[in-house]
Computed example of a mutant assay.
Amino acid sequence: MSVSTERSGRRPTIKEVAAAAGVSTAAVSQAFNNKGRLSEATRRRILDAALELGWSPNAPAAALRNARTRSLALVVRRPTDVLGSDPHFSELITGIEGELAP
């Protein structure tokens, strides 16, 4: 496998991971999404190639493709409440983060 993409300063592509692992781009996607019928050896080869190349899924690109950002917006009427004058808001935000964390 070649790690030339790390040195060039650009992100490696899913195509480069597929080529390095000797599989299709669909197989790379399946390995990262735990879908499809990949053997454990193939899945491991793909994950090892991705690790060596420094590849990780591109969250903004996935959000565009799937029309889902996996983000949550919290709208507060008075920003000063969040900045410390009312402890209720910091507890609320901390609780929301705790529930949503993976």
Rank of each mutant, 00 (worst) to 15 (best):
M1I: 07
M1N: 04
S4V: 13
R7E: 14
R7G: 12
R7M: 14
S8K: 12
G9I: 07
G9C: 09
G9E: 11
G9P: 07
R10F: 08
R11G: 12
P12N: 11
I14A: 14
I14F: 05
I14P: 10
K15Q: 15
E16N: 09
A18K: 09
A19C: 08
A19V: 13
A19S: 15
A19M: 11
A19N: 13
G22P: 07
G22K: 05
V23H: 03
V23Q: 03
T25Q: 14
T25M: 12
T25D: 08
T25N: 07
A26K: 12
A26F: 04
A26C: 06
A26L: 11
A27T: 09
A27Y: 04
A27C: 06
V28P: 01
Q30F: 11
Q30V: 00
A31S: 05
A31R: 05
F32I: 04
N34D: 00
N34W: 00
K35N: 01
K35R: 09
K35F: 02
G36R: 00
G36P: 05
G36V: 03
R37L: 06
R37P: 07
R37T: 08
L38T: 05
L38K: 08
S39E: 12
S39C: 12
E40W: 01
A41L: 13
A41D: 15
T42N: 12
I46P: 09
I46A: 08
I46W: 05
I46D: 04
L47E: 12
L47F: 03
L47W: 02
L47R: 05
D48H: 03
D48E: 07
A50I: 10
A50H: 13
L51V: 07
L51G: 07
E52W: 02
W55P: 14
S56A: 15
P57Y: 05
A59G: 04
A59E: 11
P60A: 15
P60H: 14
A61W: 06
A61P: 09
A62Y: 10
L64G: 07
L64A: 09
R65K: 15
R65V: 15
N66F: 08
A67M: 14
R68W: 10
R68D: 15
T69L: 13
R70W: 02
L72S: 02
L72R: 01
A73R: 01
L74W: 02
V76F: 02
V76G: 02
R77D: 10
R78Y: 15
R78H: 15
D81K: 04
V82P: 06
G84W: 02
S85V: 14
S85T: 13
D86S: 14
D86A: 13
P87C: 06
H88P: 00
H88A: 09
F89M: 06
F89C: 02
E91I: 04
L92N: 01
L92E: 01
I93V: 12
T94M: 00
T94E: 03
I96C: 00
I96N: 00
I96P: 00
I96G: 00
E97V: 03
E97Y: 01
G98A: 10
G98K: 09
G98N: 08
E99I: 03
E99K: 07
A101R: 10
A101W: 05
A101E: 09
P102S: 04
